[in-house]
């Protein structure tokens, strides 16, 4: 049965998923070409000076990709469930309580995690060709919160989409914006070195929020 739910989710999100992958590839290609071009034009020494002494970060273009990917993927998956209240069909499937929603959320989070992990690993593989371990670790502590924010945004979009009332939906949007702001406090290299656990904790904390919306829908709460 879980395979059938995955099949349904894939039908909704296939083209959005392909789109996210294409943007991911184009974005990395652009960044790698830009850095390679800098190597050739200003030289390795100057680039090193910029990165090490002036704390410049070469991967700022990655900043909003994960959050955009999380929001778009979430919308592509949950908006079709909300149109004409199709979520009723999903909730009527003969599965234990919340199982269908759990599989849907797991599908989205796993697919996004795979995409983001490959993206981060590819970046690391490229960076380790030119920079030492310290710089790589610093870079990881900067970009990982951005990617986690993509997962958090996805969880919030699921919650917001399935919420049955507009008043609470708007409140949830404000909550999402304020929470996501925590992931963009600073893009100084290694800025999240000492509070990365907090960032991970937030992402786990918000995952079950979608069930609040589902329970409210099942109670028949309306505007």
């Amino acid at each position: 049965m879980w395979k059938a739910i995955i099949y349904k989710e894939w039908k909704k999100t296939k083209w959005f998923n392909i789109g996210i992958w294409m943007v991911a590839i184009l974005l990395l290609t652009y960044i790698f070409m830009k850095i390679g071009r800098s190597f050739r034009f200003v030289g390795m020494e100057h680039l090193w000076d910029v990165v090490v002494n002036r704390d410049q970060f070469l991967f700022r273009n990655l900043k909003y990709f994960p959050i955009a990917a999380g929001i778009i993927f979430g919308l592509s998956q949950f908006v079709p469930e909300v149109i004409e209240k199709r979520i009723k069909l999903t909730l009527h499937l003969p599965l234990p309580k919340h199982r269908a929603i759990l599989i849907m959320i797991a599908y989205g989070l796993i697919l996004l995690t795979i995409t983001f992990t490959i993206h981060i690993l590819t970046t690391i593989v490229f960076v380790q060709l030119y920079f030492p371990k310290e710089i790589i670790i610093s870079m990881i502590f900067t970009i990982v919160p951005w990617y986690i924010s993509g997962l958090v945004a996805y969880s919030f979009i699921a919650m917001i989409s399935l919420e049955p009332t507009w008043k609470r939906r708007i409140f949830n949007i404000i909550l999402m914006v304020l929470t996501l702001d925590l992931f963009y406090i600073s893009d100084f290299p290694g800025a999240y070195r000492f509070n990365i656990y907090l960032v991970i904790l937030i992402s786990i904390y918000v995952m079950p929020f979608v069930f609040l919306s589902v329970n409210r829908f099942k109670k028949g709460i309306q505007d």
Partner: peptide, 29 residues
């Protein structure tokens, strides 16, 4: 729930599927 067939007002279904896909989807349940 397996014993209950539900037709939602407006014949709502997963309209992003076609005839073959939707049959394949529901048959699993």
């Amino acid at each position: 729930k397996q014993k209950v067939g539900l037709l939602i007002e407006g014949h709502v279904q997963y309209s992003f599927m076609n005839i073959i896909e939707i049959e394949k989807f529901y048959s699993a349940f």
